[in-house]
Structures are given as C-alpha cells and as structure tokens.
Simulated assay, not measured.
Amino acid sequence: MTGSVIHGGWGFPPLLTFVVPNRLCTNYTTFNKPNFKPFGQQKSAPLTISCLSDKALTTSCLSDKAVTTAASDHNYGNKQVISVTPRIYDYLLTNVREPTILRELREETATMRGSQMQVSPDQAQLLAMLVQILGAKRCIEVGVYTGYSSLAVALVLPDSGILVACERDNNSLEVAKKYYERAGVSHKVDARHGLAVDTLNSMLENGEGCSYDFAFVDAEKRMYQEYFELLLKLVRPGGVIVIDNVLWHGKVADPLVDDKKTESIRSFNRALMDDMRVSISMIPVGDGMTICHKR
C-alpha cells in the first residue's frame, strides 16, 4: 500500500510498507531538490527508493516511472504494491475536487511556519466523504492548525450541523476562523482554544457523551491514547473516529527508530489492534490514517 503527503507546498512521494512473516519492509521515497507546483503542475524529480529489511535489500529508481513490489511470501498472494511517484501523485491531485476556498487556505498556510502539519488535499477529501457517507451532523476535530481539514468537513455538514474544533495555538486558530467566515460556515464551527483534553473532558461533564457522529485526531502524538479514550465516550455507537499520522513518516516500521513519539504511535497502533470496541482500517493516505468504527 502507498501513501502521499503535501508538506508546506512541497510534494513528497510516499512511503511503502508491507509485512511478510518475521520481516517488515518499508520503502522510503525522497526527492532530490524537490520541485513541486500545486495541483497538476508538478514537475517530475529524481527519486531514490530504499528497502530496509533483515536482508538490507535496496532498490533504486531514477525516473518517474512507477516502482512495483510484490510481497515475497505466498501467504500474502504475492500482492503487488505500487509506489506513488511524482507523476502518479500529480495525476491523483488532478482528480481531487478542491473548492477554491480550500485551495486559498492551503496556499496561505504553505507560507507559514509549521505548514507541514496541514493535511493533504486527498486526505481532506476522504474525511469530507466519510462525514457525508455517515450522514454526520455532530463532529469533533482534535488539532485544527489553520483549519484545512475542519473547513473541508464544515463545508459538507448540513446547515444545522456542528463541528467542535479544538486547537491550542491561537495564532493558527485565528487563520482558521478567518476562512470559516469567508466560507460562510462559522455558524457550524465551535472553535475551542485550549488543550484538547480539557475541552473533551468538559464536553463529557456537560452530558455530551455518545452524542457525536464523527471525530478526527491530528494533534500531539504522545496523547493519542488519551484522546481516543475520551472520544470513545463522546462518539455514539456506529460513529467513526479517524486517527492521523499512524505511519509517522515510516518511522513506526523502522526498528532502529525508538524516539518517544514513534514509540507512542507504535504502542497506540498495537492497542487498537486488540481493541474490540472498534472495527479498524489502517490506510496509507497522507501520513497514514486509521479509521475506527465504534461498535
């Protein structure tokens, strides 16, 4: 499976991860001198793909042609996995329906410090579609930044819908509020400045348990388990919780990486695998997302 992400206006190809018995193999893709133009205007750039495993296999590709790898164990059906090159990701972006207001927010955010925190357009499109499929009216977002994903969700909510948007950085939240106003969705967004844990706890204390349909988490990684437990109490049975960055730039698949954030995401991913309160699907969109359906 593959994933892609836009970081601050630059296009970075994805990481490719697959599992075979007793071995985890991850392909890391990097640009040499990135040259990215938003949405269908990218120029292909040289890239290198390396595969780290117990056999230290390495594959290189110096063109924009797709690299296809097959899981080597027959138990996985020799499934072929495609690596998203600049050309393929360019094609993908041309098939993202991005409203003008979202494009303008993306372009402004690209000039800001920390712009790598903004979700990719294809990721925001998926979140909005999940909200529509679910028929969600009450949503929560933990970690707003400048509001790209929350604006995408607010745009598809019914006029009577509400999105509680939790963000601790007031400067970025002010940018988000500006775009909510410009998009005409301010009445659907309840922007909460402060620590998300405090906001979620206060919502529970106000008797809002099991009253939300959808939640999206893209905030402090070491707090994921705590956010998840609180959201499980706030989201109704049949509701959906989406967790971002579960692949964490491929670090979770690299046994040599053991920093605290990576370890906390690994631990969270393992806990979700054993959590029978939810059905789960980890997908390689953006930096990896896990979609949890509350039973």
Rank of each mutant, 00 (worst) to 15 (best):
A191G: 09
A154T: 10
P284L: 06
N201P: 02
L231F: 14
Y28S: 13
L195Q: 04
G8Q: 12
R270G: 00
K188V: 04
H293F: 12
F268P: 09
V144H: 06
D54G: 12
D259Y: 10
K178W: 08
K177F: 07
D198L: 13
D287N: 10
K260N: 07
L47E: 03
Y91N: 01
R192L: 02
P284A: 10
P34D: 15
S4N: 01
M117E: 01
S202P: 04
E167T: 09
V235D: 13
G77R: 00
L57F: 08
S202V: 10
L24W: 12
D73H: 11
T290Q: 08
M289C: 03
E226G: 10
D73W: 02
Q41I: 15
T290R: 04
G77S: 05
V278E: 00
G135M: 04
S50G: 10
D122V: 09
E205T: 11
G3S: 07
I280Q: 14
R168A: 00
A271K: 09
Y227K: 11
A191C: 06
K177N: 12
S44A: 15
G11Q: 13
G161W: 00
S115H: 12
D54V: 02
T58S: 09
R87P: 02
K177T: 11
G147R: 10
S115G: 11
T262P: 06
K43E: 15
E205F: 08
M129P: 03
K188Y: 00
D73S: 06
S281F: 05
F228M: 08
V142E: 00
V185W: 00
V153H: 07
R295M: 05
N245V: 05
Q125M: 13
E226F: 14
K261D: 11
I162T: 12
P34A: 13
C51Y: 07
V217H: 15
P13S: 06
K33N: 15
T111G: 03
V153P: 01
P21K: 00
A70G: 01
E226L: 14
Q225S: 15
D169G: 07
R277C: 06
M223N: 15
S211N: 11
P158Y: 02
Y145M: 08
P46I: 15
R113Q: 13
T2M: 04
P21S: 03
E205H: 10
H293S: 02
E107M: 07
F228N: 04
P99N: 06
R97P: 00
T94W: 01
P284W: 08
A219H: 12
V153N: 08
D259Q: 13
Y227P: 07
Y180K: 03
C292N: 00
F36V: 13
L200S: 06
P13Y: 02
S160F: 02
T262C: 14
G184V: 01
V235K: 05
S281Q: 06
V164E: 14
P46R: 15
E108H: 13
P46C: 15
M203C: 04
K221N: 05
R222C: 08
Q125S: 14
H249P: 00
G135W: 01
R168W: 05
V144D: 09
Q225K: 14
G8F: 12
R266G: 01
F39E: 10
R192S: 03
L57T: 12
D73V: 05
D244K: 08
Q42F: 15
T199N: 05
S44V: 14
Y148N: 12
S279C: 05
I49C: 01
L195T: 03
Q80N: 08
N32Y: 15
D190T: 06
R168G: 01
K55L: 04
T199Y: 01
I291M: 03
